[in-house]
Amino acid sequence: MIKVSNLYHSYNKDEHYAVKDVSFEVEEGEIFGFLGPSGAGKSTTQNIMTGLLQLQKGNVTVAGYDVKTISNKMFNQIGMSFEESNVYSKLSAKENLEFYRKLFDVETRDPMELLRLVGLHDKADIRAGEFSKGMKHRLTFARSMINNPTLWFLDEPTTGLDPAIASEIKGIIREQNKKGVTIFLTTHNMYIADELCDRVAFIVDGELLLIDSPRNLKLQYGDKLVEVEYIKEGETIKESFSTIQKEDLDKLQEVIGKYEIQTMHTKEATLEEIFIKVTGRELV
């Protein structure tokens, strides 16, 4: 569905690449997570794939179209939900969707049905300018489904939403995927990635560090961790140690020998901890 090879991009057309030698493939029907800290180059890569940024160097094929010679027809198959909601504030929710409907050559979905899906059906006739941030975000999300896309780009689809709505959005994403929609999900949120994605890619400073399924990553890196709470010079300290890495084991033994232990559990590594371990970077 997507094939990116040796992609480079520099905003100033110099040696400072926002994206460096990135290559990956997304299979039809999978949910592919694109994870990395702020400024890693996620949006840059995504914008090149959707033609919002010009391809400078490398090869990118999206839904069978080479983005070098991007065609309007490609967009009949693509949906994109933006991180920052961008809807017409002077049009009502329904008018917004009605308008976008007219811009595709394929069969489109009923605006009211979409609004119901994201819980905005009773706000259909209210101008989007009067919406809260979360409501605008849901409208932007709903709009991205208007043309029944087979490839769906989602940029931080649940950020800033309250947990109940976030979980509904996750449900919608799963459902669409079950219908065969390929999903390219960009996020900082490792829990969502863990829950939803078939495979994830870690990108840091414009470079792709690894691609694998969350399950494989946990088997490989997510060796059992021990979380210890102990008292050191009158203060309670909480720390995690790997039970496989030599360094961590030595430290753990030292802690047990030297200090008073309060609690000690084993737990499975989260994707976030794996990310930190692999990249040496926090996910900000």
């Binding site: 693509i78 933006f82 920052e84 909601s85 961008n86 811009l103 932007t140």
Partner: peptide, 14 residues
């Protein structure tokens, strides 16, 4: 400023 121009750009309209 509202980013609408991007939303328009990813439709099948020119």
């Amino acid at each position: 400023q509202s980013g609408i121009i991007k939303a328009y750009a990813i439709t099948a309209s020119s």
